[in-house]
């Protein structure tokens, strides 16, 4: 069965989608990612879709699902590198992917994830301050 490779980099998981997605492949990615987040207790997921030419409502839903599921598992998801034509099409389709973080490229996505993680840790630190 076809699979999209998921790379583990420290606290983060990195997925680069290089092939044309079809529904089964996308569904597999969803379950694989959720399992990986759980296994490595990852803090962030970076999905690079710069090579993806079409995102339709099904793929859009999968991306939204991944973001929501990882949120429940305490990980942030950032989708990076969306092509302009894909972005315009998604908006016209009526799918603004609210709830999914986005960034221009992998580098900026990494920075965004680190900022989010930093924010999380400061919030936790603040909490402990209050308790003591």
């Amino acid at each position: 069965m076809d699979k999209i490779p998921i790379l583990k980099m420290g606290d983060y998981l990195l997925v680069t989608i290089q092939v044309d997605l079809y529904d089964r492949l996308a569904l597999n990615l969803e379950s694989d990612l959720v399992n990986m987040i759980n296994k490595h207790s990852s803090k962030g997921v970076l999905i690079d879709i710069s090579a993806v030419n079409i995102v339709d409502s099904f793929m859009g839903r999968i991306l939204g699902n991944i973001a929501q599921m990882s949120k429940i598992l305490d990980a942030h998801t950032v989708v990076v590198g969306m092509q302009p034509a894909v972005a315009i099409t998604l908006i016209e389709l009526g799918l603004p992917l609210s709830g999914v973080h986005t960034a221009l490229n992998v580098e900026k996505g990494m920075t965004l994830l680190q900022e989010k993680l930093f924010l999380d840790s400061t919030v936790i630190a603040d909490d402990t301050d209050d308790n003591t």
């Binding site: 989708v79 908006i91 986005t102 221009l104």
Partner: peptide
């Protein structure tokens, strides 16, 4: 609004 949403999708 569409233009703003599309910009956000790109990560800007």
């Amino acid at each position: 609004i569409k233009t703003v949403s599309a910009t956000r999708l790109m990560g800007a």
